[in-house]
Design a protein around this nucleic acid. Sequence first.
DNA 1: ACGTATTTGTTCGTATGTATC
DNA 2: GGATACATACGAACAAATACG
Lengths: 238, 238
Amino acid sequence: MERGSGVAMWRQIEDRMKEDIVSGNWKPGDRLPTESELADRFGVNRHTLRRALSALRDDGLVRIEQGRGTFVQDDVIDYAVRRRTRFSENISNLGRQPSGEVVRAGPIAADAQAASALEIRRGQKVVLLELLAFVDGRPFSVAAHQFPQTRFRGLEKAYRQTGSITKALRHFGVDDYFRKLSRVSARLPEPDDARLLNMARAQPILYTESVNVDRDGKPIEYCIGRYAGHRMQLVFEL
Amino acid sequence: MERGSGVAMWRQIEDRMKEDIVSGNWKPGDRLPTESELADRFGVNRHTLRRALSALRDDGLVRIEQGRGTFVQDDVIDYAVRRRTRFSENISNLGRQPSGEVVRAGPIAADAQAASALEIRRGQKVVLLELLAFVDGRPFSVAAHQFPQTRFRGLEKAYRQTGSITKALRHFGVDDYFRKLSRVSARLPEPDDARLLNMARAQPILYTESVNVDRDGKPIEYCIGRYAGHRMQLVFEL
DNA sequence: ACGTATTTGTTCGTATGTATC
DNA sequence: GGATACATACGAACAAATACG
């Protein structure tokens, strides 16, 4: 690290920081020190430091968020959506650690969309199971799973016992189920979702509605999922 | 519209407003009068009016935004993605008018992603065809289509003559092709894309990468698509 | 960057009619 | 009739998000 070496200071800084990241010294999702602090540390003006940060951003190594800080870019997760889509299986296959926690659970009245997807009447009761899913301990998605209550009364308890929707469904005689449909759009997150996903409100999310059916093609689950856009891609193989 | 009729005031209001919307008296995107004004107009308390609005929102007829107002919900375009996905066909099937214009065209060098998708080497030439697509005259998507130049040299000219990728590909002996893969994520638009799509920079887009193959399973097209998130949903039927 | 006005969101409290046990 | 629960309706005040100068 030297001035007048023929190599611009910001390039030297870029290289140093790149090492810290690829070596794992700074881990994906970590917040870097503030620009001022880094500038002090490297003994340069904040402008110079920002030039290095921009270069790192262009390389996809960091993500700069106004008002929040600079973060080591998470490696993007390719979440495969197929006819048989299971969260835990999917994440495990990538060599990563899936986990989840319950945000909200209990019976609610179906709104128009849920009713239409589940082929029931609006206002009929559905079992809501809102789950926050993690990959390697980092929040990945929030999903409101809804099941018709006539068939799945008490499913939330079965989930709490087993920690898995697939297993909970077996208690109700559903030994296999399939993704019939996925609708995908892009939105800005609700404040609650932004908090749960630990992301800035100005960062977009993927918003999905999906319908799962049983062997007979009967809809059993309607799910509204919200995914932190910069952490993942949905992959559809057709 | 009467009190003591056995039908709750808020339900009567809901029905009246629903008529105004479905009849086209209020059009998609229109801002409704404020809650206070509507409450005055119907001669009820603001609470009562809000109840009617909630019902309309649950039916997907209006969208309520704090601090801004209540808006008649724009009709969202469900863009179906299947193995055989053709833009014009898709939009026509919805009873809407597809059109398109060329933003940019010509040979460029393949970057890492394009090369990997098309199974060529990085730096090899691809034919770029960047198209802005419209639905009913409103901008819908920007898509950078890329074809290996060894096989499709001059495809941009064939497109300009025929106005259709499907037809242009026929000039090169490709009489049918299929969507193999779609990767979907959510992003904020580049300034250029925001301008082309006529949307705010803070509004998210759907960002897709897709690969089309010919009958033999050979990749012929790699496409980066950007869609105005609030105007459409991608629908995957599996 | 800041204040002001506008608009929706939320939470108190109060009152009335209806159905049920 | 009395007690209770529930949906409906109104009023006032304040909180939160947004638009605009």
